[in-house]
Amino acid sequence: MIATKSTLILLTILMARIVAAQDDLLKMLEEETAKDKKPDYTTATFKTTRLINGHSVENVAAGVLDFRISHRFGYINSGLYEFFGLDQATTRLGLDYGLTNRLMIGLGRSTFEKQLDGFTKYKLIRQSSGAKKMPVTVSLMAAMVYKTLKPSTTNRENFKTSNLYYTYQVLVARKLNDRLSLQVMPTMNHYNLVPGTTLSNDLYSIGFGGRIKVSKRVTINAEYYYQLATTKLPDTKNSLGVGVDIETGGHVFQLYVTNSTGMTERSFISESTGDFLKGDIHFGFCISRVFTLKDPRK
């Protein structure tokens, strides 16, 4: 009797062990790997490196070349004679390149004021969850513009350096969920030459932007730059843009409406003159095509 009892107990323990082992191997594996958890960095806060006119926190990856063709028509309210703006067009051709996954550089040439521009953007902090929690992504952007348009005034000495403009931005963004991302952009534009002696050479503004993903490949974006009243250039308006991003594999098409004519930071943030509400709206689009020059796995 005692013998049967102890045998039974032993057998029960044995069975329990086997059953436990079967049920829990996946659990055991997950417990084992839970210890070596790595930070989960947020990806694809925005579809591309620009929100509408200005930068988003996104970078092109290391070894990736992004050819961007931006096209902007005239004001929609210019009437049938101008075919609602389609008779006029300005463009910016740009080449961006990722030096590392967090550092990118870019060059561009705009027809508007014949501007040459260059920029560098660095992703300082990456939003992450998991082992390391970080609520936002922070990028730093610095740009320089050289206006090659011949000066209209000859009654003063025109220095080459008078045509240089600088932009410094801190981009702070958070992907709240897979649909909604928001971004804030404190910005400073520095003008070597401003159109008046009483005006400040440093123009401050703060941008707000975001995107809502309406399908896996389509997002609706908006971007607004508020210029601080104390350093605002006379007769300028704040820049507003609303658009759609459509991603198709290696291309991103951005279609938008905006009251800004220029496509460099200094021209759209500090020198927009269109009144959005009165119909001074440009229709524009940008085609981004990426070329992978370096296999990231090598």
């Binding site: 086997i18 082992a21 079967q22 191997l25 996946l26 594996l29 997950e30 790997t33 989960d40 990806t43 092109v60 990856a61 290391a62 990736v64 996954n101 594999g249 290696g250 990426v290 992978t292 296999d295 990231p296 796995r297």
Partner: peptide, 20 residues
């Protein structure tokens, strides 16, 4: 002992020839 075989794969750890 039981012939059990389990895998857990983190999807974000797949590496492609292009970042995009």
């Amino acid at each position: 002992a039981t012939g059990e075989l389990v895998f857990a794969i983190l999807i974000k750890s797949f590496r492609f020839e292009r970042a995009l």
